[in-house]
Every structure is written in structure tokens, then in C-alpha cells.
Computed example of a mutant assay.
Amino acid sequence: MVSLALVDDHPLLIEGIVSLLSRADGFEILSTGSSARDIIDISSRLHPDVIIVDLSMAGDVFAAIATSIKLSPNTKVVAFTAATGVDSAIRALDAGANGYVLKGSNAQELIHAVESVRQGETYITQNFASQVIAALRNAPLRRVAAEVVQFSIREDQIVRLLLRGRTNKEIAISLKISEKTVRNYMTILMQKLNARNRLEVVIAAQALSEQEHIRSAEIQPRQPRLLS
């Protein structure tokens, strides 16, 4: 059962989403709110698995997202918003959001986003994702592609699987390690690639692969390619 909370200052929208998710299998609604402050309060008190938040509410929502994650590290955040600007999406992801779903999306996409972030993925509305990725490619992240990055054998294996679209659970099964170990390696990869989230790890790894700057720290002078 996935525990959820919703924070949006539109009562009718909250009512509709609560009704939708309550009818879907595997979800439990813990609480609702209507301001940035409520994001922090609900996360710190109830520690839901996933909290769905609007970006256009009273208070600094982006700061609230960052604070809530510090107070409840296991809570995943999905921004559910009408803001179609790439800058808003990048700010939300930079603050720690794991998902970004536009309010024009259908109900099934919101459910899929919740399920994806719960599994450790980053989810962005499909028709909008390409714009966000393009913006990230032009961000300071690009400078990583000019560097030589050393990966251990295990890190290299995980990056290869990431580039094939594997989830944390699938990577764990494939490599016969725990999901917790995969998450630990993801943290290391984020540090090495100067990435803020899983999506940026993939983008940086793709850039490195294209320019052949990746080296294995444990097998020299091996020069592995990430894409098979």
C-alpha cells in the first residue's frame, strides 16, 4: 500500500484526485493541504510515501519541497502543476522533486508517475520531458562531458543498466544486489557526475559515452563503452 498526501489550493481538484486515487488499488490517502507550509507539516508529521504538490500556492513551494525532503528523506515528491515552463520543472527537480506532471495529463499518467517515483525513478510528463532534457543538456551539467570520470566495475554495470531504462529494482535483480545498495551507488554516481537527480545521471552518462571519456578505475587500460 502506497501512502499519499496531496497539497493544492484548489479544493475541487483535491476532491477529484482524492476520489480518483481512493478508487485505485494500492493507495491510501493520509492527508491534504493547501499551502507550502502544509507540505512541510504533512511530510514531517506523517512521512507519506509520496506527496503530490501544486507549485502555485501561498509560500515558497520550492523551498518547502527541499525542506520536506530533509525532514522526511523517504518521501517522494511529485509536482502536479499547470506550469509548463521548463524553468519551473528544473527548479522543482533541483529542489528535490522526483516527478513533474502537467495538469493537462490524464489520470492514468498521474498514477503512473506516483508508482514510478515510489520505485526510485524520475518521472516527467512524456510530451514535456524532451524540453526539460534539452534544457538540462545546456545547463552546467554539460561540463562533466569534458572530464575524465573513473567508474568502478559495479558503477559501470549500473550505468549501463540505467542507460537501458532499468529501474532500481530491475538493476538489483540483474546484479544480484539489494535495492538499498543500488540507491547507495546512485548517490555516488550523482556526486561523480555533478548530477542533482537520476535524470541528470542518465544525461551525463550519455554525454560521457558519446565523447568516450569514461574509464574503469579497476580495469586499466580498459575503455568500456556504456552502450552495447
Rank of each mutant, 00 (worst) to 15 (best):
M1T: 14
V2Q: 03
V2E: 08
L12C: 03
L13I: 12
E15A: 12
V18D: 03
S22W: 08
F27G: 07
E28I: 10
E28K: 10
E28Q: 09
D38T: 08
I40W: 02
D41M: 08
D41K: 15
D41C: 05
I42H: 04
S43K: 03
V53F: 06
L55N: 04
M57Q: 03
F62R: 01
I65V: 14
A66R: 05
A66E: 13
S72I: 04
T81M: 01
G85D: 15
D87K: 11
S88Y: 14
I90Y: 03
R91A: 11
L93W: 04
A97T: 03
G99A: 07
V101H: 06
V101L: 05
H112W: 09
R118G: 00
E121N: 12
T122W: 00
T122V: 13
T125Q: 09
A129I: 06
Q131G: 01
Q131L: 14
I133L: 00
I133H: 05
R137W: 12
N138P: 02
A145Q: 01
R160A: 03
R166A: 12
E170V: 09
A172T: 10
S174H: 12
I177G: 01
V182A: 00
M190C: 11
N194V: 11
V201A: 10
R215S: 04
Q223M: 10
P224M: 13
R225G: 15
